[in-house]
């Protein structure tokens, strides 16, 4: 694969942001799949490559891998700040489509993340099921409302999500996003969500997803094995 690092002018967050990408190597013919990999709190576009052996996971799978930098935004349209959810859900796929030979099928688009990125991946997939056919959360911070009482350094929850009562009524509270998607009732366009990890948060979201009829999987398998498998399905 070839490794690209870039600075792009984003439209939704309206600020230049760095993005790292891996594109399929020579001989791999499109249309290519898309995988967006989301970093944790305090991470950036370089985090996935430093933490995991990303290239070996995606080698030969015909995938354009996009690793954006979204600051400590929790990948939502921030109450005070950047519209990162729109950036992830709408903008990145459009950018890739403009440049590369990309597949149009939702099942060929995957979003994955660890920690805060795990929350972001699930949030993005629930927001717009045609945007991503698959989402993978690795040890996701799936109930960020707990950080109102147990703050993350230099991260103001009120700035990201608004007041706690507001957040708990919004789709940024994942059970609400699950309900919202079920109410839309778009059968056949539901994303497939995989939760890697075994925390109580994972368990609770897994049950909510199952109850809502959204295809979900809870696993303690090695996340990179899961990712490598999902991208080759």
């Amino acid at each position: 694969m070839d490794y690209l690092r870039m600075q792009i002018q984003t439209h939704a967050p309206r600020t230049p942001l760095p993005v790292d990408m891996l594109v399929p190597g020579r001989g791999e013919k499109g249309p290519f799949k898309l995988a967006i990999l989301l970093h944790d709190v305090a991470g950036n576009n370089t985090s996935w490559m430093r933490r995991y052996t990303v290239e070996s996971v995606f080698e030969g799978s015909g995938t354009v891998v996009v690793m954006p930098s979204c600051l400590n935004s929790f990948y939502v349209n921030m109450y005070y700040g950047y519209d990162m959810l729109d950036y992830i859900v709408k903008e990145i796929a459009a950018l890739c489509k403009g440049w590369f030979n990309m597949s149009d099928k939702p099942e060929d688009r995957l979003v994955a993340g660890y920690g805060m990125g795990g929350y972001g991946a699930v949030r993005a997939a629930l927001e717009q099921p045609v945007a991503f056919g698959k989402a993978i959360s690795i040890n996701g911070l799936l109930e960020p409302d707990r950080f109102y009482d147990d703050p993350i350094p230099a991260l103001k929850m009120e700035d990201v999500f608004g007041p706690k009562e507001f957040m708990l009524r919004s789709a940024n509270h994942l059970p609400n996003a699950v309900r919202q998607l079920t109410l839309l009732g778009r059968k056949g366009l539901l994303p497939e969500i995989t939760l890697c990890g075994g925390s109580e948060e994972d368990q609770r979201l897994y049950e909510a997803l199952q109850k809502a009829g959204i295809p979900a999987d809870l696993t303690t398998e090695d996340p990179m094995t899961v990712l490598a498998g999902k991208v080759r399905e």
């Binding site: 490794y3 690209l4 690092r5 870039m6």
Partner: peptide
């Protein structure tokens, strides 16, 4: 505009 830094493998 995007400014891309690419590492391109050359067979030649």
């Amino acid at each position: 505009m995007a400014l891309i830094e690419m590492n391109l493998y050359s067979e030649v």
